[in-house]
């Protein structure tokens, strides 16, 4: 299982799987990386508002070349557009919305998730620290936190662990993890396998 990065679902398939967490009427914050791809798989008949913590509820797709606006970006600093019903607001309002649990679901990436639902995704000791951005606020306060990530690190070690070894972003906050190998619930201090990707017989936990 050391080469599990090439096993199971692709990034797109993981994003599609994560999109099943979204329900009609939800407000959702998507993190950078695979979580961003989840937007492509939200059913067209669902009314979903994507929140971008820099001050936008109702984020749309990337602009056409002719539509680019330097004043309209997402939290990844990418140029974007808005959907019908969108609104703009300050950073304080944005995080009041998050802290006040008005955002139904946060989907983000991670370096490690523990069986208690702790998450580490903002710093590796000894390496340049770039900061946590809005991740600590999001995991502390979203109604539901789902992690989407590769199952193993570069050395083939499982990123689903007993205890996180890296500095934490939040404690007891992740309820579900979707990896290339499967879908796992965090339940009563254990990872419970809900589904395995095709061809995967067993998913490792460290």
């Amino acid at each position: 299982m050391s080469d599990s990065k090439n096993t199971g679902w692709s990034r797109e398939e993981m994003a599609k799987k994560a999109s099943e967490e979204i329900q009609d009427g939800f407000s959702v914050n998507l993190g950078i990386g695979i979580p961003t791809l989840v937007a492509n798989y939200i059913p067209k008949d669902m009314s979903v508002m994507l929140q971008s913590e820099n001050g936008l509820l109702g984020m749309g797709e990337f602009p056409l070349d002719s539509e680019i606006d330097a004043d309209l970006i997402n939290a990844g600093k990418q140029t974007v557009t808005v959907v019908k019903g969108a609104s703009f607001f300050s950073s304080a309002e944005s995080f009041a919305m998050i802290r006040g649990q008005h955002i139904d679901l946060t989907i983000l990436g991670a370096m490690e998730v523990s069986k208690d639902g702790d998450i580490a995704n903002w710093m590796i000791p000894g390496k340049m620290v770039k900061g946590m951005g809005g991740a600590m606020d999001l995991v502390a306060s979203a109604k539901k936190v789902v992690v989407v990530m590769q199952h193993t690190d570069k050395n083939g070690n499982s990123k689903l662990v007993d205890r996180c070894s890296l500095p934490l972003t939040g404690v007891k906050c992740v309820t579900k993890v979707i990896t290339n190998l499967g879908v796992f619930n965090v339940e009563e201090g254990k990872f419970k396998t809900l589904e395995l990707a095709p061809g995967v017989e067993k998913a490792p936990f460290n």
Partner: peptide
């Protein structure tokens, strides 16, 4: 001094 973004916003507000 790294500060979570929402905490930073609220500290200023």
């Amino acid at each position: 001094e790294l500060t979570p973004q929402g905490t930073l916003a609220e500290k200023i507000r």
